[in-house]
């Protein structure tokens, strides 16, 4: 397994806090597959800046409220 990217995120937590939005629904809203949302939540993939902003806007928070640097 490659080392996980040094970026943490609260996507799962925010999904659950916003009425348990499904991974598929979030993926559809921001234009990625459900599997990509799963990979982001598991820290196996760092989304593009555009997708990061789309996720933050979906939850109505800032990007820094969703993603954090763990390097």
């Amino acid at each position: 397994m490659p080392p996980p990217p040094p970026i943490g995120n609260r996507v799962r937590e925010l999904r659950e806090a916003h009425g348990n939005v499904s991974q598929a629904a979030l993926g559809e809203a921001i234009g990625v597959t459900r599997q990509t949302i799963i990979a982001i939540e598991q820290g196996r993939y760092s989304p593009s800046l555009e997708s990061a902003f789309r996720i933050a806007r979906f939850f109505g928070v800032g990007v820094e409220d969703v993603f954090s640097w763990h390097g």
């Binding site: 234009g31 990625v32 597959t33 599997q35 990509t36 993939y45 989304p47 593009s48």
Partner: peptide
Amino acid sequence: RAADAPADERE
């Protein structure tokens, strides 16, 4: 649905 959708950024 997935077959119709374009590849996403990770793919």
